[in-house]
Design a protein around this nucleic acid. Sequence first.
DNA 1: GGAAATTTGATATATTATAACATTTCCGGA
DNA 2: TCCGGAAATGTTATAATATATCAAATTTCC
Lengths: 163, 163
Amino acid sequence: MASQALPYRPHNHQACVSQALADARAICRAQNARLTPTRERVLELIWQSHKPLGAYDVLAELTAEGQSAAPPTVYRALDFLQQHGLVHRIASLNAFIGCAHAGENHTGMFLICRSCGNVLELKAPGVSGAIEGAAKAEHFKAEDVTLEIAGLCPRCQAENRHD
Amino acid sequence: MASQALPYRPHNHQACVSQALADARAICRAQNARLTPTRERVLELIWQSHKPLGAYDVLAELTAEGQSAAPPTVYRALDFLQQHGLVHRIASLNAFIGCAHAGENHTGMFLICRSCGNVLELKAPGVSGAIEGAAKAEHFKAEDVTLEIAGLCPRCQAENRHD
DNA sequence: GGAAATTTGATATATTATAACATTTCCGGA
DNA sequence: TCCGGAAATGTTATAATATATCAAATTTCC
Ligand SMILES: [Zn+2]
Ligand SMILES: [Zn+2]
Ligand SMILES: [Zn+2]
Ligand SMILES: [Zn+2]
């Protein structure tokens, strides 16, 4: 099924990483923010796949590379990356994933496969509109939306069909 | 504004608690589940307000009452209550809140006021439909939806208007 | 060059959640 | 009524996630 989204099928993932890093450099330059080596390396590690990575997974990779790193090292870098819209935190997993729409001013909607662990980030304007409408109906001023959907991706549905 | 939802305005909250406990007893009886004293007490504590309560807050109240309780005591009770649809976990806060629609087969949508801390649970079928539509468009089988909206409730918007 | 601001290093600790195993309680059938 | 298995609880230890605090280094900008 060629129309399947990237995370759920084989693809040249190195291209995802390169693109994400290039975007990040451009965004930080535009915002006068400093994408220091540690921050950039953390972003690259987060992008090593389309599966969310825990802060301590990142930390383990950094220390394996010989960097002197402690938890605050990682959390600071992740905070910076979140603030500049380069990564998202997945609250239901306590983990982090690269933003697939960096710089696009969006509220993320995440489809999380409980079998393969891959995550697809959608923009889904229809959903955002419905959410804002529901909030407005309650006179609630929405500022930050957490929308995470766990289930089975197309590939894993197909695989499990033979159980 | 009389149309404001309960959590955001003064009301006879004891009625909320009584109703929730009565519903819980009925639901457990119908499902042949045992609402033991500890489980019922934890549910009552969770319902002590419309603000989510952390597991360790519940634990502190239990020990203050002289009960011999440890973290597993609380987490087990909360697991039971979640499994029977009596409480929800708010992933973005690591906290728990009583379900406002117990027994109604719904996916919760939570409006979380960052100022007063109160949470309103909505049913919002339009939102659920839009989410399912977006998932289906990606051939994703949605199983569990986390939808949490942080912002300002009507009351806190009005109060902060004079800053 | 030097003061102020930002970033990083380093240590300690807070907060949230689960593993593992022993003991007790409950409940249905002999 | 008593027994046996299942469910629930008690208890201790530990895992996993996240933050506080203060010192040192680096960058920025005048
Ligand atoms: Zn990729
Ligand atoms: Zn995004
Ligand atoms: Zn109430
Ligand atoms: Zn509910």
